[in-house]
């Protein structure tokens, strides 16, 4: 899921002030931002209260089911048409993808209420780690299901680097070196630990990504 954190409140106020907005509609997200505790019902209520305490009027709020889904967000907006119509601006408590679908669905100034951080693994409720950068050229088949591209701070495919000491990482000194973990897991599973990975194909990670399974059956 996409991990988000609250955006600096001063920046949110600055954004609203920049267009002289006093009446605000809030859009949350029922998926990632709810799990990340950044854009669910509770956070929307808190944000509404904070805005009101600051002298803003909150015309309404809703938690979109999947806010990054364009048609779903259009539908959700229609359900709240009157509240949105009376607002000067919409503040979105979802990832950047959700902010953009909302901006496409609603013809009003739309502002981000969160910072989008990474594609995260939920380790436990409230504890998230980045383990995949969606590089489009996955090497997990060769690395025992541990991603060196993401979890080695240098993104080395072959390691460890010279900074590793006693199995620990040079950069994140409280964490085990990714390459030590990879080799040991491969070994435990009786797989070869000697394979050198070839240089990565970074053309697959060119932005923006796009997939159209209706037409081509694959990504471009």
């Amino acid at each position: 899921m996409i991990i988000t954190k609250p955006r600096d409140w001063a920046r949110i106020e600055e954004n609203l002030t920049s267009i002289g907005a006093r009446r605000v509609f809030l859009m949350g997200c029922g998926q990632c931002a709810t799990v990340a505790h950044t854009g669910g019902e509770k956070e929307l209520e808190e944000t509404a209260a904070r805005l009101e305490a600051g002298g803003y009027e909150v015309t309404g709020w809703t938690v979109g089911e999947v806010t990054c889904h364009l048609n779903g967000t259009k539908l959700e907006s229609r359900k709240h048409q009157a509240e949105i119509d009376s607002a000067d601006a919409v503040l979105v408590l979802a990832c950047g993808a959700g902010v953009q679908t909302t901006a496409d669905a609603i013809a009003k100034p739309v502002f981000p209420g969160l910072e989008s951080l990474f594609l995260g693994t939920v380790i436990r409720n409230g504890i998230f780690e980045e383990r995949c950068q969606t590089c489009g050229d996955c090497v997990l088949d060769k690395t025992a299901g541990i991603c060196p591209v993401t979890t080695c701070p240098k993104g080395l495919l072959n390691g460890p680097c010279g900074g590793m000491w006693n199995g620990m990482c040079e950069v994140l000194t409280d964490r085990e070196c990714t390459h030590v973990r990879i080799r040991h897991r491969l070994e435990e599973q009786g797989r070869t630990t000697r394979r050198t990975l070839a240089p990565k194909d970074f053309s697959t990670a060119l932005k923006p990504g796009g997939v159209n399974i209706r037409e081509s059956g694959g990504s471009r």
Binding site: K154, G155, L156, L157, N158, G159, V171, T196, P199, K200
Partner: peptide
């Protein structure tokens, strides 16, 4: 050929570490 220290350890800590290749790949 060497990997190189993490940029955050140096005098340009805001630099992007490139690491397009690793030292083994560069040797080859």
């Amino acid at each position: 050929v060497v990997t190189g220290d993490d940029p955050r350890a140096g005098d340009h800590p805001h630099a992007k570490g490139v690491f397009d290749l690793d030292s083994t790949q560069l040797a080859s």
